[in-house]
């Protein structure tokens, strides 16, 4: 999923300063699963923001709504009838959702309430960690199902570097060394032979270095 964390309240207060009525818009997808921008987080932020304003003797009308998916025009259309009632939209979706709303309602200010972090997986309740860098040319098949692009601090394709100690990365003892994980998996799979092949320099065009990316599926076009 795409993970996110709420922005500091102070930054959000700054966005809100010129307005008196805003739509606080959540998303039922990834940000709900990572407890950053779902229906409940919309309620908590509305409450916090409302109190923060009242404390200063000001009033901010906050209308709470949560869409099925903010990155999908079909669902973003749902607010077309009511959008004129608001001075601005405060989106709790990831950057994709914020931009879909901003792209559809061109004259309406839209602000992000969360910082979009990474594509990750849940390690346990309350902990998410980066797993995929979306580089467009997956190497997991030759690295034992552990990604060196997303999980090695130096995205080394032919690791490990000299800083791997007791399974941990030199940058932080809380970070696993991706190449230790890769090696452990290759051993478990009986495929240590894969290690001796040199993985050649990557073609980063499939990643964002080739410019903003699109997927076009002719078979699905309407």
């Amino acid at each position: 999923m795409i993970t996110a964390v709420r922005k500091p309240l102070e930054e959000i207060m700054g966005f809100a300063a010129p307005y008196s009525r805003v739509l606080l818009l959540g998303c039922n997808e990834c940000v709900t699963v990572c407890y950053a921008g779902g229906r409940k987080e919309v309620g908590i932020l509305a409450s916090a923001l409302s109190m923060a304003f009242l404390k200063e003797g000001k009033k901010l009308d906050i209308v709470e709504q949560t869409l099925e998916r903010q990155c999908d025009p079909e669902y973003v259309e749902e607010i077309a009838q009511t959008i004129d009632q608001y001075d601005a939209v405060f989106s709790m979706a990831c950057g994709c959702g914020v931009q879909t709303v901003a792209g559809r309602y061109k004259d309406k200010p839209v602000f992000p309430m969360v910082n979009t972090m990474f594509m990750g997986a849940s390690e346990r309740q309350g902990v998410w960690a980066e797993r995929c860098a979306g580089c467009g040319d997956c190497v997991l098949g030759r690295t034992g199902g552990v990604c060196p692009v997303a999980r090695c601090s130096k995205r080394i394709f032919n690791g490990p570097c000299g800083g791997s100690t007791k399974g941990k990365c030199e940058i932080d003892p809380g970070v696993d060394c991706a190449w230790q994980l890769i090696w452990d998996r290759l051993k478990a799979l009986g495929r240590t032979d894969l290690y001796s092949e040199i993985i050649p320099a990557k073609d980063w065009r499939s990643a964002k270095d080739g410019g903003p990316r699109r997927i076009v599926r002719e078979d699905l076009l309407s």
């Binding site: 032919n158 040199i198 990557k202």
Partner: peptide, 8 residues
């Protein structure tokens, strides 16, 4: 940066 690694 790490466009390429040291072996590459």
């Amino acid at each position: 940066v790490h466009d390429i690694d040291s072996i590459q």
